[in-house]
């Protein structure tokens, strides 16, 4: 498995699909919510990331629904995608712990 750190958009797209399948606009809204409004995914960026994640087998289509006469496609996380997300979380937590310990150490 590729163990390179995930880019921020990739990390948030995987995180947005962690609890349930979502369609494109749903992912954009969830990413904005998860990041406290700090990350606003543009549509081109989202589909660039989705295209790569589908090619890599980390995300797959879940179902299609018709909404206002147009088809919405939902995506879900695969086992590989969940593993990549957990690996990235562990990496970020380890970094945060190390830096937190350094910050709390009082200078001699």
């Amino acid at each position: 498995m590729d163990v390179r750190p995930l880019t921020e958009p990739t990390f948030f797209v995987l995180a947005a699909l962690a609890d349930q399948p979502r369609h494109g606009y749903g992912v954009i809204g969830e990413v904005s919510g998860l990041s406290g409004g700090r990350v606003t995914l543009r549509v081109g960026t989202l589909y660039g990331v989705l295209d790569r994640l589908v090619t890599e087998g980390r995300v797959e289509p879940d179902r299609e629904e018709v909404h206002a006469g147009r088809v919405r496609r939902y995506y879900r996380l695969t086992a590989d995608g969940r593993q990549a997300l957990e690996h990235e979380l562990a990496r970020q937590e380890s970094n945060a712990r190390a830096v937190r310990a350094r910050l709390s150490a009082r200078p001699a």
Binding site: H23, G24, Y25, V43, G44, Y47, V71, R72
Partner: peptide, 14 residues
Amino acid sequence: SRWADEMTETFLEA
């Protein structure tokens, strides 16, 4: 072919 329909839908929704 793979993404244009879906991207259009997302753009319109947004």
